[in-house]
């Protein structure tokens, strides 16, 4: 495996221009969607089968020292989890991990069972009705295999989205958090940078200025498949009890053992 690539989204630098969202649409030919009323500047409300990069506009009324509305801006994307629920769920092998550590859906193999949709802890993977397949950010798989960064990172005018080797970006991100804390952003924190943390670390990780929940991110996302052994054992237990119940119901009373007629 090649050295792991990553995207580091530093939300403290995001100005909400949505150049990333547009660049993603254009490079990946994602096509038109009817915008929806979300009650704010954000559009769309969620990731869709045609929106892989999404700038979140989070309003915090009265959060500024003078009582004004404060903005938190965050360009959100598929996290390319080191332990990816979608990948574990995929029964066709269409979802695979690339040599760079990113997670991709092979559109020629996916048969549209949609288990990955329900297995993403971030609500990223979406089903496309016209192709009948699951869609999500490809980490611009075509671009990174030709020495280019993802379109979103390339288009970002403030370097809020940075692309590079994961270890280098994590080191850089750590320094940035310390700098921001020194500037008074006491809640500045990294999300998904730690490979010893949740989901084995995210290959698209973030610097947030507030708690994850403020950004509609789960505080401690878990791998959906973590209970498969326990749940299976409980089912086996149920099978033994039910099976025994049915067996005793059919067994001839007073005859001690199975009665064979042949």
């Amino acid at each position: 495996m090649a050295r792991t690539l990553a995207m580091f989204t530093d939300t403290s630098l995001c100005i909400g221009c949505r150049a990333c969202q547009v660049a993603c649409k254009q490079w990946n030919e994602l096509g038109l969607e009817v915008p929806e009323w979300t009650g704010g500047y954000q559009n769309h409300a969620h990731f869709t089968d045609k929106t892989f990069r999404l700038v979140r506009f989070i309003e915090e009324p009265g959060a500024k020292p003078n009582g004004d509305l404060a903005w938190l801006l965050m360009s959100d994307v598929c996290k390319h989890c080191a332990q990816a629920g979608c990948l574990d769920a995929c029964p066709t092998g269409a979802i695979y991990r690339t040599e760079y550590g990113t997670v991709n859906i092979n559109q020629d193999v996916c048969n549209g069972c949609r288990y990955c949709v329900s297995s993403c802890p971030f609500g990223v993977v979406a089903f496309n009705e016209s192709t009948g397949t699951a869609k999500k950010c490809t980490f611009c798989n075509d671009r990174i295999h030709n020495g280019l960064g993802p379109a979103c990172a390339k288009a970002c005018p403030t370097e809020s989205i940075q692309f590079g080797f994961r270890d280098e970006l994590v080191a850089k991100a750590g320094k940035r958090v310390e700098a921001l804390k020194g500037m008074g952003f006491k809640d500045a924190q990294l999300y998904g940078a730690d490979t010893g943390g949740f989901l084995g670390g995210l290959n698209a990780f973030f610097l947030l200025l507030s708690k994850p929940s403020v950004y509609n991110l789960p505080d401690n996302p878990k791998l959906p498949q973590r209970n498969v052994v326990v749940d299976s054992l409980l089912s086996i237990g149920s099978a033994l009890v039910v099976g025994l119940g049915v067996l005793l119901s059919f067994r001839e009373r007073g005859k001690g053992g199975p009665h064979r007629d042949a």
Binding site: P91, T92, C110, N111, C113, G132
Partner: peptide
């Protein structure tokens, strides 16, 4: 019939994932 691409149902048979209920189920 419920698949997005029903003609690709045999793709379930490309892999056997012991820890995946969908794969084992198929």
């Amino acid at each position: 019939a419920d698949l997005g691409v029903p003609t690709r149902f045999m793709n379930m048979m490309r892999v056997f994932k012991f820890s995946d209920p969908m794969s084992l189920g198929a």
